[in-house]
């Protein structure tokens, strides 16, 4: 009850920020349209919609990190959180209250991306449902990463690190824009050690109904999700105590 009250407040706070909506929803959609427009005008297969869309949905999740990090950092800089720390809300209430509302937003964003890709030629199948659900572990990773950044950084730093750095990182290392096999070497090794590429491969596989391939990529994504969540909880509770 207490937790849900706080979660409701966080949902409102995010959804009422027009910038959040513009970036979170607008940016992935613009990319989707732009890249398919490019594809329509070149003879080689660069951004085939059936491969592009799963990648874009993962890329879009990096905005969830920005949302949660901004919210937490803003709250920490205002006296609101101080006030709430003097109420019966517990550490768990805060953490779940911050993380839970963003999950439906992430799912909503994914669904909208897939729906928008249908008129662009995306193959329609029941696998889209699996792909939407399959986004959850990576979404948890992204949201927890936001909680972590928001607990450690100020509002301005969050904008730079989560806004610019992370979105680029997830874009370049996800294999959406170019085939990482072609680049190879060190770059590919890094990409393999991070969750972005695995999440994209998992999404593509789910979308194609290749469940065995999807399963082979889920472990790193889950591991990053769990470990990041644990570190985020630790850091949030620490800053809560250090008032």
């Amino acid at each position: 009850m207490r937790m849900m009250t706080f979660a409701k407040r966080c949902t409102k706070e995010i959804l009422r920020d027009p910038l959040n909506l513009a970036f979170g929803l607008g940016f992935p959609l613009v990319l989707l349209f732009l890249l398919s427009a490019i594809q329509a005008n070149v003879p080689v297969s660069l951004f085939e919609i059936n491969k592009l869309t799963p990648g874009i949905t993962i890329f879009g999740l990096s905005f969830m990190t920005l949302f949660s990090a901004t919210l937490v950092a803003k709250d920490r800089e205002s006296a609101l959180l101080q006030r709430l720390y003097t109420t019966p809300l517990t550490g768990l209430d805060f953490i779940m209250g911050y993380m839970l509302p963003i999950l439906p937003i992430a799912l909503g964003q994914t669904i909208i991306c897939y729906l928008a890709a249908l008129p662009l030629g995306l193959t329609f199948s029941v696998n889209i449902i699996y792909a939407v659900i399959g986004i959850i572990p990576m979404a948890v990773f992204n949201i927890a990463l936001g909680l972590l950044c928001g607990s450690l950084l100020g509002v301005k730093q969050v904008g730079g690190i989560c806004g610019a750095l992370l979105t680029n990182l997830s874009a370049w290392l996800s294999g959406v824009w170019f085939d990482l096999n072609l680049v190879g070497g060190f770059f590919e090794k890094i990409a393999n050690a991070l969750p972005f590429l695995h999440a994209v491969e998992m999404e593509k596989a789910l979308f194609n109904g290749d469940f065995e391939i999807a399963a082979s990529h889920i472990l790193p994504v889950l591991a990053y999700g769990v470990v990041t969540s644990m570190i985020a909880v630790f850091c949030f509770l620490r800053q809560m105590k250090k008032q």
Partner: peptide, 14 residues
């Protein structure tokens, strides 16, 4: 207890 912190503490978008 009820607390009114030194700095105004409201949720701005609500």
């Amino acid at each position: 207890i009820g607390v009114s912190p030194q700095e105004t503490a409201v949720a701005p978008n609500l």
